[in-house]
Design a protein around this nucleic acid. Structure first.
Lengths: 181, 181
DNA sequence: ATGTTACTCTATCATAGTGATATAGTCAAC
DNA sequence: GTTGACTATATCACTATGATAGAGTAACAT
């Protein structure tokens, strides 16, 4: 059997907050969810069609304030039920694909200096992320609902800890390389 | 354009150490690389065919000590060149899909208790990983080449720090939930 | 007025990546 | 001599990605 379709639940989860178009969904994943979840148009539009066919969502054509009219999707009772069932399920462990680690694993073919440059670049990227997270966090003041703010804080703190861990690891590793003889 | 084929470089990188069959490659990614890289038969075999066609690897039919005969692949000069070019390149930032964070983002639909159970399960999984890492680390004593041992240690320390960070995050988050009112 | 730029919205293509399973050979143990 | 563990190759159905095509809307400038 094929991989489980997780995008399906991401879309249902968002639509369970508020009706959205495909374009809106992409904006959500590019902004609020980007740090732990991504989606593509190439998957969103076909999936919305399927969800509609399976009666998990309904489509309404709506004139937009700015730009062309949009197809707004609303979750059905059946959709909410399926979403909640997924939400309660246990997660399986993730499988990872971390390119910098793959390269470090093969790095005996690189000069030590080249590895250090890679790690410094990694630190820079993670610091970048950290400052992006801080900006997103500033928006949390506007969240009135306490439970929803809690949700946002829980995911955000993961982002911070993950980026900080990456920076610490890269710094430690540079130090280790510098004492290598 | 489509996503960049990273499996290609994973295979070339392994073959750059030693000639391997498709089955051997799967074993490597399931054992040594599993903590930061995964591959599937469904991708390995078609890819080996392509690499052969592009003259990045060559195929030799070899009788195995045990089991049926195997197709062993050897990297060519052209293949080594392409592998090294990738190795020297800069990495782009990763995009993440972390299911437990997606669920926590939507978790205002769950009871606080249910979230705690999820986080405890997460801690358990990460502790499991940690003990698996320790076993793999024990094998490092057999690595004679200092540079190769360095490579293994760098990737392994990431695994440890990543799992520990996950455990710390989950514990902090449970504490936070318990003070929620 | 028109054209440039930015944004909104839907859609599709080619390809990469996943998980499961089918098929078949080898070998040891019971 | 059959069962079960392992070796090995291959393919299927599906999910996911990144890029881009194409068309409408609107602000603003020249």
């Amino acid at each position: 059997m094929a991989k489980e379709n997780k995008s399906k639940y991401a879309l249902l989860g968002l639509l369970n907050f508020v009706p959205l178009s495909g374009y809106d969904i992409k904006k959500w994943t590019d902004n609020s969810l980007r740090f732990f979840w991504s989606e593509n148009y190439g998957h969103i539009y076909p999936l919305l069609k399927e969800l509609e066919k399976a009666e998990l969502v309904t489509r309404q054509k709506v004139d937009s304030e700015k730009g062309p009219s949009k197809n707004v999707f609303t979750i059905t009772q059946k959709g909410t039920k399926e979403f909640l069932a997924w939400l309660k399920q246990n997660e399986n462990p993730e499988t990872y694909r971390i390119e910098i680690l793959l390269k470090l694993f093969f790095s005996s073919k690189l000069a030590l200096n080249e590895i250090i440059v890679k790690l410094e670049n990694h630190i820079h990227q993670q610091e970048q992320l950290l400052s992006e997270y801080k900006e997103v966090e500033n928006g949390f003041d506007h969240i009135k609902d306490k439970r929803i703010r809690l949700s946002a804080e829980m995911t955000m703190s993961y982002g911070f800890m993950h980026a900080e861990m990456n920076i610490n690891w890269a710094r430690d590793t540079i130090a280790k390389i510098k004492t290598f003889r």
